[in-house]
C-alpha cells in the first residue's frame, strides 16, 4: 500500500522536527498533499492510527490540505488547473491550446505545521 510508506515518512519527518524544536508531544499535524501525487488523502487517514502508535504522534489529529495541480504553459506562460483542463487524458492550455506544460504546484507532500501542547 502506497500511503503506508508515505505515512511512515511523515512520522519520521515529524519526529525529527519535534526533536529540533524540543517538543515532547504532538497534538496535531497539518499535511499538504498535491492533487497530482499518487497519495490519496482518504487512505492516508486510514493508515494514520496504526502508523502513529507508540510514536511522538500517538493520538495526534491529522489535518490534510489539498494543493491544486497547477501547470504553467510553456508557450504562452499562463497558469491553469491541470485537472480542469484535461482533454483526452492530456492537459491543454485554455488560453492558447498548447499541450506543452510544466508542473507549477500539485506534486508536494509536505508537513506544513505541527500543533504542540505545552505543559
Amino acid at each position: 500500500m502506497h500511503e503506508m510508506g508515505v505515512v511512515l515518512n511523515i512520522v519520521r519527518t515529524a519526529q525529527e522536527a519535534a526533536k529540533a524544536n524540543h517538543v515532547a508531544k504532538i497534538g496535531r499535524l497539518t499535511l499538504q498533499v498535491g492533487e497530482l501525487t499518487g497519495v490519496i488523502p482518504k487512505y492516508v487517514h486510514a493508515c494514520w492510527p496504526a502508523a502513529i502508535e507508540h510514536t511522538i504522534l500517538e493520538g495526534a489529529n491529522l489535518v490534510i490540505e489539498e494543493i491544486e495541480g497547477i501547470a504553467t504553459c510553456k508557450d504562452c506562460g499562463c497558469d491553469y488547473s491541470v485537472l480542469e483542463n484535461m482533454n483526452a487524458d492530456q492537459p491543454v492550455c485554455p488560453t492558447c491550446g498548447s499541450k506543452q506544460w510544466k508542473v507549477k504546484t500539485g506534486r508536494e507532500v509536505m508537513i506544513k505545521d505541527i500543533g504542540v501542547i505545552d505543559d
Partner: peptide
C-alpha cells in the same frame, strides 16, 4: 483547556529519502 502552539515545519516528507 490546553493551549495548542503551532510550529511551522514546511518540510517535504520526501526530504529524508532524497
Amino acid at each position: 483547556m490546553d493551549k495548542i502552539r503551532v510550529i511551522d515545519i514546511k518540510r517535504s516528507i520526501f526530504d529524508n529519502n532524497d
